[in-house]
Nucleic acid binder design. Structure first.
Lengths: 227, 227
DNA sequence: TCAAAAGTGTTGTCGCTACACCCATGT
DNA sequence: ACATGGGTGTAGCGACAACACTTTTGA
C-alpha cells in the first residue's frame, strides 16, 4: 500500500451484502492483528487525507475483492468513547450490495481471510461490530422497500421468482405470488428481455432486467416506488 | 471553555429546527472568526476526546441556548476533502427539534449572534453548510411521515389545527381538514386533555397531548405510524 | 408420467379522497 | 351581528389481500 497519510482517529467499516443460494450473506474478515486476533469482523479501513470520505469504502472494497461499480450507502457514524479498546476512533459505517455471481474471490494485498456469513447466523464479532452490522441490516431492510436497490443483489437478468425470493429474504416476510407479480409489473420498471432460463428441469421462466430509464420517468411523474 | 482535548479533524454541526408563527425556522449563528467572518452558518463544534459522539451536539446546543432534553438525530457525515478551506475536517450533521415556546434566548459563553431564519428563505451559508442544511431538511421531511416526532416542535398541549399546520409546513403539502383529523385521531396516540384554548376570538379548540404510552402499544400491535 | 416451478383472474374489504355546512366565541 | 376558526359525515373509487388451478419442461 502506498505511504499515504491516513487520518488515524476515525475509520470506515463496510457491511457487504450478497445474495447466494437463497440466503442473504455478509462478507467478514478474520482479523490478523491484535487486538482480537483471529476474530471475525467487518472489513474496514482508514481515510486518506486527500481522499473524499465516501471514496474510502469504495476503494477499500476494491482492494479486498477487486470489485468495482458497487452500490454503497452510508448508514451512520458511531463514536462511543470506548468502542475501540486501543484509542478513540470514530467510525463511519457503509453498506454495499454486490452480485455474488460477479464476485471473484480475490485475496487482496492484505492476505486476509474473507468469509461469506449468512446474516441470520451472525457470530459474535470484534469490538462493537455487531451493533454496526445490525444498524446496516436495519437500514437495508428499510431502504429496500422504498428504493429499487435490490437489483444490485441479483444478476442483470433474473426471473420474477428470483426477485420475489430476494425480497422475502431481505425483508423477512412472505409475499403472495400473484399479488407480488402484479405489483412489480405494474410499476413498469422491469424490461422483459425476451430470454428464458435454460437447463432447468421445469418450465423455464422469463428473464427480466431492471429498467433504470423507466424508473426515472416514473419518478418524474411523481410516482413513488414501494414494495 | 474548559481546556478539554478536542478531536480537531472532525466536527459536529447542528440544524436546529423550530416552529414559530406558522413558519419552520432554523437557528443560525453569525461567524465571529475567520474564515468567512460575519457570514451565517450552522452552529457546530468539536468532540471532546472523552465524550461520546452523540453527546457532543447535545452539549453544544446546551451551551448555546441553555436548552436540555432535546430531540436530536444524526443526519449523516460529510467529508469531501475541500469542504473546509483551512484543513481537512469531516463533519457529522445532526438535526434537532425544539419548542420555540420553551426557548429562552440565552447567549452562551461564545457570545455568538443567534438568528432564527425561515427555512424557505435560507441565505447563502458558510462553507458547505447549505448542503448540510438541505440534507437535514430532507431527512426531517422523510422522518416526520413515519415517526411521531413532530410533537417536539409543538407545545405539550396543542389543537388539531396547530398540528395540521405544522405538518403542512414541514412537508410542504396541504391536507384536507376532515381527513386529517380522522386519520390522526384514529391512530389513537393523542390524549384529549379536556382543556380548551382561551382568550381566542373564536370558538375555542380542544387541546390534545401526544400519548407516548399509546404509541408504544400501537407499535407492539404491529401497527405502523404514517401520515 | 411425474416432479417442479411458471404463470394467471376475480372478489371482497378497507382506506383514501373529495366535498359543504353549522357551531361557539370574542369584538 | 359579524368575523374567525372549530368541528363534523358520506359516498365513490382504487389499491390491496385472499385464494387454486393449468402449463411447460426435463428427467
Amino acid at each position: 500500500m502506498a505511504a499515504k497519510t491516513e487520518i488515524s482517529n476515525f475509520s470506515i467499516d463496510c457491511v457487504i451484502f450478497g445474495f447466494d443460494k437463497g440466503e442473504l450473506k455478509a462478507l467478514l474478515i478474520k482479523r490478523n492483528t491484535e487486538p482480537d486476533f483471529g476474530k471475525l469482523g467487518l472489513p474496514g479501513g482508514f481515510v486518506y487525507l486527500d481522499e473524499d470520505l465516501d471514496a474510502a469504502p469504495i476503494r477499500r472494497l476494491h482492494e479486498l475483492t477487486g470489485l468495482t461499480d458497487i452500490y454503497m450507502k452510508q448508514v451512520g457514524t458511531f463514536g462511543k468513547t470506548d468502542r475501540y479498546p486501543i484509542r478513540r476512533v470514530i467510525t463511519v459505517v457503509y453498506y454495499a450490495l454486490v452480485r455474488v455471481s460477479d464476485y471473484s474471490m480475490k485475496i487482496g494485498e492484505d492476505a486476509l481471510e474473507l468469509h461469506w456469513v449468512p446474516v441470520n447466523q451472525m457470530p459474535e464479532l470484534t469490538f462493537d461490530h455487531n451493533d454496526l452490522f445490525n444498524a446496516a441490516l436495519t437500514t437495508l431492510q428499510e431502504q429496500v422497500r422504498i428504493d429499487p436497490i435490490i437489483f444490485n443483489l441479483l444478476p442483470k437478468d433474473f426471473s420474477l421468482s428470483d426477485l420475489q425470493i430476494v425480497y422475502e429474504t431481505v425483508t423477512m416476510q412472505k409475499f403472495d405470488k400473484r399479488n407480488f407479480r402484479k405489483k412489480i409489473l405494474n410499476l413498469g420498471i422491469l424490461h422483459d428481455t425476451g430470454k428464458k432460463q435454460n437447463n432447468v428441469s421445469h418450465r423455464a421462466a422469463r428473464l427480466y432486467r431492471f429498467d433504470k430509464k423507466a424508473y426515472q420517468k416514473m419518478l418524474k411523474r411523481g410516482q413513488m416506488f414501494a414494495i
